[in-house]
Design a protein around this nucleic acid. Structure first.
Lengths: 331, 331
DNA sequence: CTGTTAGCGCCTTCAT
DNA sequence: ATGAAGGCGCTAACAG
């Protein structure tokens, strides 16, 4: 667009004239060659070359009801956590001729609602959201729009449509169980304030069985916030033995702060992160963390969406990809 | 779409009827309220609520020639390097009502060509590409499409349209000059095989004035490739004093390998990376690297694009954001 | 301020 | 295998 001055763009009409066939034959030659004679196809192809025609997918989509776009909503594209998911999703969809429109919610529910509205107005063939759709209004709008939706990075008994993820409650439980199994009793939590991190914290606390000193930091979490978090935690309990962090970024900050205070890891302080970021294995000591297969989530989301787009029914709309604790030097 | 069974979706027509106004008044009430009476606006708003109307941007775009989409092509979304650019671009465009369609070229020129064709067929109001558009065919197609284009992360005297970036040749030169200034003469290079990395290498070598032992690794570069690269470099010259790496990921790998071999950094081996990744300052020793303001590139690209979309002329279509060497512990 | 008319570029439906 | 007509949902352009 924005064709301010240029000659009006070439349309299929021009191609058809150039090729000496009707508009619809030209259309079919390009998108449904099986229905057209070899000869016509060749002439249309040539006309495309000659005119420099580039189809207008907007126009096609208007009539055919297929935009070949999928909307992907993430909290923040700069948070490395969701990158493998976005990449796997994009790759798989691209291979099927779909493009991804990106939206960032900024961990903000109001913004998520607004963005979902904007996305729906683009009539994507599918929508992938990170986490569960929070607001009831949006859930209802999505259902009524009739667009396939995949919620990711979480689980739910009653998703808007489909869901691919894992249980954050179980993650929290598992880490707490792991700490307790190691004999650590004086525990601490450094956690982000987003919904999923909160649920992990809940699982952690409920398995521990009593309240745990906690520092909550605003999303997106970072190394710097982690350093501060440990300082604050040590004020609450100077003899903490093990800290669970809701992200590896936070965990790295906790680690840096601990080392700066001369604490030995894991001797004086054990640390467990979440996400298994690429740097986790290379910290010194290496970081114990919870590994989630983000790429698998993206690939599965793409698969479900594509099946649905092909009109196939998706028998199992709730997919649990699980998680595992990766034990390393920090514990 | 994919509205398989549902009731046919609500259109502006339905809203107009419900509100008791004409179609175009409903349209204006929503997108151009200044032209419509308060009363009509109120009634249309109410009708929107009542019907659950969600506009169809595809249809609007077809007529108005504005898709409110911007295509962004990156080599690989999972490479952290370009994330700040994508984020800043997305944020700025979002604030103006534009969404970003994402495409990954995979450092592959053929794929880039194909993707550009796909993107053009979506009639975005702008296209942002990482690096310069390589193929002459694509350059020509972009020009003829009349879509504003911003090339980024590089500079050129004759961009397709606009360009925001910096000189990779100067980066290579600057790092070489920095090394020479430190008195290091036995140098090495570990570099990716993409175009921009190659140009930096070229600048480096030309400032050194003679050939330099080099290991080239395939994109995307990684820590593991960096370890291997140093091993290979030390085979070429066991007494190398300083290594320039085309990414901080590579540099981290070189550092890990050097430490594993008992080399002291920077005493036995100095290392300089590129990109100033978030972890660079937190390695031990911290990593000297070349800082580029990726967010500024994205923000400027958005600004140029939006100005062009508003029909304003862009007086300076070549913007150099520069770079700087950040000196840290590894040198 | 409001409405009517005419498409945007393409694809679906029905005929040939 | 090909074509003609109609319309997808919306908005410029012109009238009232």
């Amino acid at each position: 667009m924005s064709n301010t001055t240029g000659p009006k763009s070439v349309t299929l009409h021009d191609v058809a004239r150039e090729a000496g066939v009707s508009l619809i034959t030209a259309s079919r030659a390009l998108s449904n060659p099986g229905m057209v004679s070899e000869k016509a196809i060749a002439r249309v192809r040539q006309a495309v070359e000659a005119t420099g025609y580039i189809p207008n997918l907007l126009a096609g989509g208007l009539k055919s009801k297929r935009s070949l776009m999928v909307a992907a909503l993430v909290p923040n594209i700069a948070v490395a956590q969701f990158l493998p998911t976005v990449k796997a999703l994009t790759d798989a969809l691209d291979a099927a001729g779909y493009q991804v429109i990106l939206g960032q919610t900024g961990y903000d529910h109001a913004r998520e609602d607004a963005l979902l509205g904007t996305m729906i107005s683009r009539r994507p063939d599918g929508i992938v959201v990170t986490g569960l759709v929070h607001s009831q209004v949006s859930r209802e709008r999505l259902r009524r729009a009739g667009i396939p939706v995949v919620e990711t990075w979480d689980l739910s008994d009653r998703p808007v449509d489909m869901v691919v993820g894992f249980s954050h409650l179980k993650v929290g439980s598992a880490v707490a169980g792991y700490f307790l199994g190691k004999g650590w009793r004086r525990l601490g939590i450094a956690t982000g304030d987003d919904h999923r991190a909160s649920v992990r914290r809940e699982g952690f606390v409920s398995t521990v069985g009593h309240d745990v000193p906690t520092v909550v930091v605003p999303a997106p979490s970072s190394l710097a916030l982690g350093r501060r978090a440990l300082a604050d935690l040590l004020e609450k309990d100077p003899r903490i033995e093990a800290v669970y962090c809701s992200s590896d970024q936070l965990a790295q900050g906790v680690m840096v702060e601990a080392l700066a205070r001369g604490l030995r890891i894991p001797g004086d302080l054990a640390i467990c992160g979440f996400g298994d970021a690429d740097f986790a294995a290379h910290l010194n000591p290496s970081l114990t963390t919870v590994h989630v297969d983000g790429a698998a989530i993206g690939a599965m989301a793409a698969r479900l969406l594509l099946e649905r787009c092909r009109g196939e029914s998706v028998p199992e709309p709730v997919v649990d990809v699980g998680f595992r604790i990766v034990e390393r030097g920090s514990t």
